[in-house]
C-alpha cells in the first residue's frame, strides 16, 4: 500500500513538473473565489478587467475556486501565502476571514463583501479596518430599499422577509429593513429557511402572511429564483429584491448595485496598493454610490403594477 501511495505522489509531482510554467509578471494576485453566486463572479471579473486595463501584462492572476468549502479555501489561502503573492482578493465573508487569518502582511481585498466589521470582528469607526484588509461592500442602501416597498405598495400592511439562516449577511439585511419598516408602523415577519430543500415551504408560508415580500442579497435565494417566482406568481404576491439578479428572476423591483462596477472599484484600490504603495490599513471600505431603481417589466405587468417613471426595466 505504501508503494501505491508513493507512486501516486511521485506521479503527482511529475505532472506538477510538466505543468510548471513561470510567469514573468511583476505582480501576482491570488483570487480566492468561495461562492458560486453569479453577482460575485461579476465583481471578480470587474476587478480583473480594471487591473488588466491599468497594468496590462505586468499583472497575472491566480484564480482558485473553493466551491463553498471552508477546508479547500483554507488550503488555497495557505497556498497563496506560501507563494507570497502580492495581493489576495476574496469574494465573500468566509474567504475574507480565512485570508485575514492566513496572513498579517499580504494585503487582502474584499470584492463585494457585505459587512467587514462583523466578518473580521473589528470596529469600522474610522471607515477602515486598521489591519491588512480593505475592499468594497455590496451593502445596498437598505433604508432606500425599504422606502421602495412603501413607494410602490403604499397599502401594504404585512411585509414578509425571507432569508437563509446559514447566511450571516442576509440576517443583517433583514434586520435593517425590518427596523425601518417597523418604525413606519408596518408589521413584518421573518421566514427563515435552512437550505434549498425547505425554501419552497418558507415562501409558501410567507405568501399567506404578506402583501409584499422582501428578499435580501442571499446566495441560496439567488440560486432558487425560479421556484420563488412560481409560488409568488400563483399567490399574486409582489417581491422586492435586494439585487438585480434576484429581481430579474422573481422580483418586481429592486434598488440595485452594480457588481461589475464594484469589482472595478476594488481593482482600482488594488492598483493604488500595488503601484502607489497606499497603506491598506488606512483605506476606507468603499460602497457603490450609484444605485439604480430597476424593475422587472414582465412580472410587473402580470401583477398589474405601474412603476414610477424613474425606474429602469431590467433587460
Amino acid at each position: 500500500m505504501k508503494k501505491i501511495i508513493s507512486i501516486i505522489l511521485a506521479a503527482a509531482l511529475v505532472i506538477a513538473l510538466s505543468a510548471c510554467n513561470q510567469s514573468s509578471a511583476t505582480y501576482t494576485i491570488g483570487i480566492l473565489e468561495y461562492s458560486t453566486h453569479e453577482a460575485q463572479s461579476l465583481a471578480v471579473q470587474g476587478f480583473m478587467d480594471a487591473l488588466t486595463e491599468k497594468l496590462g501584462n505586468e499583472v497575472s492572476f491566480q484564480k482558485q475556486h473553493a466551491s463553498g468549502d471552508a477546508n479547500s479555501a483554507t488550503l488555497i489561502a495557505n497556498n497563496f501565502v506560501t507563494q507570497n503573492v502580492d495581493l489576495i482578493l476574496c469574494d465573500n465573508t468566509q474567504s475574507l476571514q480565512i485570508s485575514a487569518a492566513a496572513t498579517a502582511t499580504i494585503p487582502v481585498l474584499g470584492a463585494a463583501v457585505t459587512d467587514y466589521a462583523q466578518a473580521l470582528n473589528v470596529s469600522l469607526a474610522s471607515a477602515s479596518t486598521g489591519i491588512n484588509v480593505s475592499g468594497t461592500s455590496d451593502l445596498a442602501p437598505l433604508e432606500s430599499q425599504a422606502e421602495m416597498i412603501l413607494e410602490l405598495f403604499p397599502d401594504a400592511k404585512n411585509v414578509g422577509l425571507i432569508y437563509c439562516s446559514s447566511e450571516v449577511n442576509s440576517l443583517y439585511q433583514i434586520n435593517s429593513v425590518q427596523q425601518y419598516l417597523l418604525s413606519k408602523g408596518i408589521s413584518c415577519a421573518e421566514f427563515a429557511f435552512t437550505d434549498s430543500n425547505d425554501l419552497a415551504a418558507a415562501v409558501q408560508t410567507a405568501c399567506e402572511f404578506s402583501n409584499v415580500i422582501y428578499l435580501p442579497t442571499d446566495n441560496t435565494i439567488a440560486e432558487c429564483t425560479g421556484i420563488i417566482n412560481d409560488i409568488c406568481h400563483v399567490a399574486k404576491v409582489p417581491v422586492i429584491a435586494g439585487e438585480k439578479g434576484i429581481c430579474s428572476g422573481c422580483g418586481v423591483a429592486t434598488l440595485s448595485i452594480d457588481y461589475y462596477e464594484l469589482g472595478k472599484k476594488t481593482g482600482l484600490m488594488a492598483y493604488e496598493i500595488l503601484t502607489n504603495g497606499a497603506d491598506i490599513s488606512k483605506m476606507p471600505i468603499e460602497y457603490d454610490e450609484n444605485c439604480t431603481k430597476m424593475y422587472n417589466k414582465e412580472i410587473a405587468e402580470e401583477l398589474g403594477i405601474t412603476v414610477p417613471e424613474d425606474y429602469i426595466p431590467i433587460e
Binding site: A77, V81, A100, N121, E167, V168, L171
Partner: peptide, 30 residues
C-alpha cells in the same frame, strides 16, 4: 444541532480573529 448551533452563535458565522485574542493555533502560526 443545526438549530442549536445557530442559537449558540446567534447568527450563521462568528469571527474569532487572532489579532484580538491570544489563540492556540492559527493559519498565521505556521
Amino acid at each position: 444541532l443545526y438549530s442549536v448551533n445557530l442559537k449558540i452563535m446567534g447568527k450563521a458565522n462568528q469571527a474569532l480573529s487572532v489579532r484580538n485574542y491570544d489563540l492556540l493555533v492559527s493559519l498565521q502560526y505556521i
